[in-house]
Write a protein that binds this DNA or RNA. Structure first.
Lengths: 198, 198, 198, 198
DNA sequence: AATGAATGAGGGTTCATTCAT
DNA sequence: GATGAATGAACCCTCATTCAT
């Protein structure tokens, strides 16, 4: 097996272990057993348990990041269509590789200061992006006058919870289309039957 | 110091340590140093590190649970007022005792199967509660026809993210009133200026 | 309760615990629970776990010792009768207070150098006593010419094993009379139907 | 060093420590210091202190057991010769490896219920074996009519005590031949010059 | 590159003993 | 005398990492 292939195989084994049992409950023994390599081999490819975790985290963050495109106003698709496309890509990614969701939404939190900081920055950048889109939407009259930061939190948190419940925990039995439609419907249309706050 | 007081003191020290560094990074030595007791004293009050963590988790869950009342239709307050009161109580709790938020929103996830299951059930029950409220709201014409489960996820996840960002991470500099108003405004009124999806 | 009575009560509780679970498996908590006294009270009467064990051992050794009288030639009873009386007294003691047997035959061995040494000396003195009796018996023509030390070992070990099996483990279902008769019969008469070794 | 050799080396170090200081007084540190391995290495070969103790106990029991052959009537050697051969083999074993005697006669008693039970069963099976031999001896007229269970206890206990005193404690300075001859002489011929109890 | 035996720092827990009340 | 909360030294075991082959 080519070195690069072996490295990927080990990383995949590790990702599966981490996703299944979490960082601390995963031992190097689990990873090498799953990857079918010897203990020493593991350390030929990764300096430490910590390092492989971070490498996986990096890759998952950027993979997820890649699915999310900034919403442009003058593009081919309307902003709503762009938003829908973003949502669909993320849903498809997490549905297809649930370990990414487990990693980024569940396991990696509270592990250590550095990891926490990375995740915080990642979600912070998503929030900033959403906030900016909302602000621009407001200035173009596409979005109601709402607090952009608050709205961004709700969009991000709401979407994440929906993904966790439906794609990871499976407690919300919602199909892909229903998820996208429902998410957009609720976020854009709101819950109230009539205008709120006057 | 009375035994009960000492037990509380140790639990508080532990909660602070767990909130600050997470479960694994917290050593018994940290807890007893913070509580100012000897090693043996800790085990006089708690059987193990695991047990004290669970005890704290239990208490935090029920404290948080206590802030959330089922929304009744025929009560003194209107459903919207009841919802606002719930939101305010939770915000006040987490603002006043941020370690509760850290515990329930961050640290406790991915620790061990039993803890995960407990948190999942807790959030599951919140989701069920919200879902039911939404369903009832729909049947009474107070809420638009939306997917109640999807809506519940968005309400829960949106609220949680807002709390995390504003009360814990402080990246969203939003005051209490702005949080409540913003949350209710966005969730009930939606983002779109005009009706969406027809 | 009078101090002396309390001390005895604690010692009895300890003896029962030691006999039942052995030295190491017995915790101070077990002893005080059984004696119904507080932890501090225990240390008012005994300096340490070690000390109470030794005190009990001492008492048991001397109680057992008291049952064994040196066999005198010119006494009222014949040497055989004196031997029988010794055997009967020991059997009665161990049958009536099996914890003495457990202590002296089982638990106390291998605990620590000092205890081992005490037991060894105790058994050593018994061996010496028996050896002397055998030697005198030989010189008076009451006992065959045998190696007195070897004979002493066999007498002591044989008797002890019989006691252990019948009075403690109950694997040899032998009544008191059968024990005494059997022991004396085998030891004095030997197993062989005809003269051995020429 | 080959793994199997290392395992044996650790076991031997442990056996020496246990024989010298007993189970509880022996620390893992003692064993690994004696074996010249690191702490982790110990646990590579044995799951726990308890396990290595049991492993050694097992081996010693079966080694001892191997020296003792059932006495057959129609064999090449006479029953008396077979008995003598058994005795000689056991004496040689315990003399050559005194730690076996310490283990089986001393240390392992009162350690824990399971160990006690194992030893009890081991000695019980020896007793049964001896008892059967005595019974058969009686029915063939080779042995006097005695209580076979009582006789078995005396044979076993007498032999054990002789071994302890001569090969382990060295308080009975008896050579190998004197031990065998003395033991057989006393057990078969008895102490009394004339028939006892009629 | 690959292996897997060896390492040892580190942490959770126990329990005999002390001491203030 | 009596109490029982507090103490802390001691010890077993784990597991990420190393290194000789």
């Amino acid at each position: 097996m080519k070195p690069q292939k072996r490295k990927v195989a080990i990383a995949e084994a590790a990702a599966a272990c981490f996703a299944e049992h979490g960082y601390h409950a995963t031992q190097i023994s689990d990873i090498i057993a799953r990857a079918g390599v010897a203990r020493g081999t593991f350390y030929l490819y990764f300096k430490s348990k910590h390092e492989i975790f971070n490498a996986i985290l990096d890759e998952f963050i950027s993979t997820l990041q890649d699915q999310i495109k900034t919403i442009e106003l003058g593009a081919d698709m309307s902003p709503a269509e762009q938003m829908r496309a973003n949502v669909e890509r993320v849903i498809d990614l997490v549905t297809g590789r649930p370990e990414i969701g487990k990693f980024l939404f569940n396991e990696a939190v509270g592990l250590d200061k550095a990891v926490d900081e990375r995740l915080r920055r990642f979600y912070g950048s998503l929030l900033d992006m959403i906030e900016k889109s909302v602000s621009r939407g407001i200035s173009f009259g596409l979005v109601r006058k709402v607090d952009p930061r608050v709205a961004a939190c709700i969009v991000l948190g709401g979407f994440r919870e929906l993904l966790i419940q439906s794609s990871i925990f499976k407690t919300a039995k919602v199909g892909r289309k229903a998820m996208v439609d429902g998410l957009i419907d609720v976020l854009l249309g709101g819950l109230s039957g009539k205008p709120v706050l006057g």
